[in-house]
Design a protein around this nucleic acid. Structure first.
Lengths: 150, 150
DNA sequence: ACTACTTAGTGCGATATTGAACTATATGCA
DNA sequence: TGCATATAGTTCAATATCGCACTAAGTAGT
């Protein structure tokens, strides 16, 4: 890396951080009281990616410590949005299943955030995203792998 | 936005969130105990962008509530890394100045994170970044503006 | 089967984040 | 000037995050 390129890389992580912060705040504006972005992400993951995951798998998927996941799952369970069942194959583990209430809440939030998404999509068309998103995915994969090496 | 494009936009914010999380964790691995990423960001901002800013300006720059900034500045001040002085023009306000200790700590962290940055730069060369970063900056600006409209 | 090691999840304490309410100061306007 | 309103920052309480230490359960080598 040439010395003069450093600010570019620095700005990259800076922009990433701010976009993350902004989108998080925008999402939370649409969530019912008592729920924050990480809670919603878990519900969303259950619907979009895979239901019945273990807490540890979720912690890895979201890159948070497992203690944080324990806490978040507790909140969702108290709200009746997920169910924690014993894992059928592993006595140490559990499975996280979304409840009908969880599904319905998630659906409502998706609808509520629709206009904001649409406005963003109007300004940045799919061609731009098709260019940028795969690169971000590569970068994410690279950083993820670098972390595992320690 | 065509219905089929939605996942692309969704994935964008997802990747952003995970990269943010990963880079934050990697940075914090190089910070002395008691300091976290937001603290470092403030020191870095003072060196790279502008010293002597008001707490509110910093809160806006980092997109956090001002109460969060009050807290973070308190931590930095207790560590002797910044100084809070009364604002010369506005009796309600303050100015945040980095101390020599703050500068030196920031310098050390920049050096410590050098190798990780270099590895990233080796994998993703400046051409890619020059393509991606301005787009991210535009998106950040768009989201920032959308937020102000409320 | 026994033992050593690994893995999944939890309890707890320290710190971070944030909204609501508050104080002090500044500004706009009659 | 005087008063209403706006702004900068803090305090406080509720919740989130996370490292450390722990328990329970699985796994591998003997």
């Amino acid at each position: 890396m040439d010395r003069s390129d450093a600010p570019l890389y620095f700005q990259f992580f800076n922009e990433i951080g701010i976009i993350g912060q902004l989108s998080r705040t925008m999402l939370e504006a649409e969530l019912p009281k008592g729920l924050l972005a990480p809670h919603f992400s878990i519900l969303n993951h259950a619907v979009r990616v895979k239901d019945g995951q273990t807490p540890l798998a979720l912690a890895k998927a979201f890159q948070v410590p497992k203690t944080t996941m324990t806490h978040s799952l507790g909140v969702l369970e108290r709200h009746g949005l997920i169910e924690l069942k014993p894992h059928p194959k592993d006595g140490r583990s559990k499975q996280v299943w979304i409840t009908p209430a969880g599904r319905s809440l998630r659906e409502g939030v998706v609808e509520a955030t629709g206009p904001a998404f649409a406005a963003f999509a109007e300004r940045f068309d799919p061609e731009v995203m098709q260019d940028v998103v795969p690169k971000l995915a590569e970068m994410r994969a690279f950083l993820d792998a670098a972390r595992d090496e320690d």
